[in-house]
Design a protein around this nucleic acid. Structure first.
Length: 307
DNA sequence: TAAGATAAGAGGGACAT
DNA sequence: ATGTCAGTCTTATCTTA
């Protein structure tokens, strides 16, 4: 009578393109379509058999005892749920006295799961993280990291007096930075409906209090991100990377927004390669303003950046 | 219409008080 | 703790080609 829900049924047709080409990434625990790249992370419950079969019969009768544990579930998926139907294992209705016993058990079972305020807080935060996942198309790896960081922050009582939304967004941003997943503060702020300022405050606090070390955002990686949005040719991209390397060598890049630098390098590259593109579309794709590109562009010219 | 110029304002780091 | 300063980036508006 005490069991979790049954895992999802396998459906091998992609929800987006309809092709029968779904593959399972055992490590990341998600399914993706080999045809169009669509990722179905909800299917993670199915990843990896936890049984071994020694005969055909056993293989056919295989069953699993729950989903894999994950930091992104507030109790790591280890809780129990008492079946709400008042039936016993054979499907017969329970006797009246048994029914009241079970009701009492159910009450205590659910109470035991969210007993502390920290637990409630965590549950709420991970709920929000789950919402962000869909908006930002993040890998399971990043989500785990974000959940881990949030647990740390909670442990150190950093969340007290701050909003859960801002803290979980900051954890997510930190996770992105750490895994070199190119997401800007603005991306996350938009998705989380939290002010950029608030997230960055929380992020800095976490960096300080948890003594985290983050790799510096590589503006060369930003080029790839902008290019993919705009269908920039490989040649132009390579030239832009050369420009950026030159800029970095001359130490013109310190303290500048990496996205702005990348956008400007691409702008320069497009001009040099005779590709017509406006500052406007580049600025939009990079998430910076045209003015930033203009200022960088002016500096590049002053520094006489040539490749 | 794209690009350049200019000005006002926000936010944060460094440093002094 | 609070204030100031230089530097960056954004928003808005006007001008130029």
């Amino acid at each position: 009578m005490v069991l979790r829900s049954i895992p999802f049924k396998q459906n091998s047709n992609c929800l987006r393109c309809g092709k029968n080409s779904l593959l399972t990434d055992q490590v990341a625990g998600e399914q993706f379509c080999a045809n169009c790249g669509y990722v179905i992370s909800e299917k993670s419950q199915e990843s990896g058999p936890e049984w071994r079969s020694f005969s055909q019969d056993e293989h056919n009768n295989r069953a699993r005892t729950g989903s894999p544990t994950s930091l992104t579930i507030h109790d790591r998926g280890l809780s129990t749920v008492i079946n709400p139907l008042n039936k016993d294992a054979t499907g017969k209705p329970l006797t009246t006295s048994m029914k009241s016993t079970i009701t009492r058990l159910r009450t205590w079972d659910s109470r035991s799961q969210v007993q502390t305020t920290a637990d409630r807080n965590l549950r709420q935060a991970l709920n929000e993280l789950n919402g962000l996942k869909d908006k930002l198309t993040l890998s399971a790896n990043v989500l785990e990291k974000a959940a881990y960081l949030y647990r740390k922050a909670l442990e150190r009582k950093l969340v007290r007096g701050r909003s859960i939304s801002a803290m979980i967004a900051a954890s997510l941003y930190a996770a992105c930075r750490d895994t070199e997943t190119p997401r800007t503060l603005k991306d996350i702020a938009d998705a989380a409906n939290v002010k950029r300022k608030d997230i960055s405050r929380c992020y800095r606090l976490m960096l300080c209090e948890l003594e985290l070390r983050m790799p510096v955002v590589d503006s060369i990686q930003c080029i790839a991100r902008i290019s993919s949005k705009l269908k920039i040719t490989e040649k132009t991209k390579r030239y832009a990377i050369k420009v950026l390397k030159e800029v970095q060598e001359r130490e013109e890049s310190a303290g500048k927004d990496p996205m702005g630098l990348a956008a400007t390098a691409l702008y320069l590259s497009c001009i040099q390669n005779g590709v017509s593109i406006t500052q406007r579309v580049l600025a939009e794709a990079a998430g910076v303003t045209e003015v930033t590109i203009r200022n960088r562009y002016k500096r590049f010219n002053q520094a006489n950046i040539k490749v």
